[in-house]
Simulated assay, not measured.
Amino acid sequence: MSIRRLSVLDLIPVRDGQSTGQALAASVALAKRAESAGFHRYWVAEHHNMPAVASTNPPVLIAMLAGATEQLRVGSGGIMLPNHAPLVVAEQFALLEAAFPGRIDLGIGRAPGSDPVTNWALRHGGPQTGDADRFGEHVDNLVAMMEPAGVGLNLQGRAYALRATPQAIGRPTPWLLGSSDYSARLAAEKGLPYVFAHHFSGDSTAEVLDLYRSAFRPSDVSPAPQTFLTVNVVVAPTQEEADRLAKPYVLAMVALRTGGELRPQLSVEEAAEVRLPESHAALAAQMSERWVVGTPETASAQLEQLADHFGVDEVMVHPVAGALASDPVDHNPGRERTLDLLASSVFAAA
């Protein structure tokens, strides 16, 4: 199965010596590059209180990125519903759809997206709005609230009309995101498009996608199963350069998985000087073996093989190339070049 669409996942990385504003500028530049290279959609994640990640508020970022582009679909990968009231999310995305009609995706996740203390602060010390027992209910409410006609609420014997925005003519496309079979079952039951987090939880991707497809029930949102693949990717003219550019993110992931110090992302030169202990080196190798790191030819071939294996015609790449110490702070040439080289190779082959 050939790849018809390439898309982008962005965590808005912050590197050593870079301000939040400069990291945002680099992602705006990357989104523009993605659009000019022919990428289909551009999603931003929700993570909180992390020194190397600036994607804390997807609706704000989506407005910024959609305003800087013209045709690119922009969305969340995803909104972590346990952190938010469904009505607030419905209002945010209904407004985004009104401002950028036909271009907004709402990816919905169940994970908290941060540490327990930050999660407590997000909820004002109260309970989650999307616990495991009620997550499906909250997804239903969120999707219904975004309907142009709104929903009706019956309270104390009276009917109330509730609309996310007054005069909507469309709705954003909802997607359910997950890293377990729970999310696949729920997406299939509710007839929603679904994405499994292969880029960080890829051991059971095939089984989960098969479950989703086999159990899918058609709906007004999606008459047939819709899914794609997510992959961490670095592309450079040579394999050696691609490996060097990948190492800063490899080290960041090792620190995250082993309880190490979380800090702004190292430069490529700083990362090259780091020598991991044997146990951490084994973990790094295990994590990165699912990544696609290589030349345009080898990377596009690997992505084609993955797309064929998992039966998808769209691949969402998370460009994880690090930055050189001499790179401008408002751009990340390694990430931009990854998109350019990959698009040229994949689309030329098609």
Rank of each mutant, 00 (worst) to 15 (best):
N141Y: 06
I104P: 05
L11G: 00
G294K: 01
A349C: 11
P166S: 09
P166V: 05
I3P: 09
Q302Y: 00
Q239C: 00
Q239W: 09
N57W: 06
D140W: 13
L177P: 01
D327M: 13
A23L: 12
L262E: 14
A184W: 05
V8P: 03
A321R: 08
L81A: 06
Q167V: 10
R103P: 03
S222Q: 05
H48F: 07
E91G: 13
E336L: 11
G77N: 07
I62Q: 00
M80E: 05
R275S: 07
H331C: 14
A99D: 01
Q305W: 04
G77D: 02
P296E: 07
L324M: 08
A252E: 10
I12T: 11
W120K: 08
L262G: 06
A132T: 09
V274P: 03
D133P: 00
A94L: 09
P333D: 03
E304P: 05
V53N: 06
M50C: 10
Q18T: 13
P328E: 05
A29K: 14
M50D: 05
L229M: 10
V53Q: 07
E97G: 01
A52N: 10
T298F: 06
S214N: 14
D105H: 07
D340Y: 03
A206Y: 06
G294A: 03
E97M: 03
R73A: 04
W291L: 12
N154V: 15
R244V: 11
H48Y: 03
T56I: 06
G113P: 00
H138L: 06
L339T: 03
P223D: 10
F100S: 09
T205C: 15
A271Y: 04
R110K: 13
A255L: 04
H309P: 05
V346A: 00
Y212T: 12
V89A: 01
L142S: 02
M287K: 05
V151G: 03
L209Q: 12
L142N: 01
L266E: 02
L211D: 04
F310E: 12
Y42T: 08
W175D: 02
N232G: 02
S2M: 07
A149E: 11
G259D: 14
Y212Q: 11
V60N: 03
V151T: 12
W175M: 02
L24V: 13
E97T: 05
V315W: 07
S19V: 11
K190W: 08
F310M: 07
S326F: 02
D327W: 12
A159Q: 08
A34R: 13
V235H: 02
D220W: 08
E240W: 00
R217Q: 15
S201T: 10
A215M: 11
R163V: 02
A54S: 08
L153N: 04
V139F: 12
A255R: 14
R103Y: 02
M80A: 04
G109Q: 10
E261L: 07
M145W: 15
P333A: 02
R185A: 12
R263E: 08
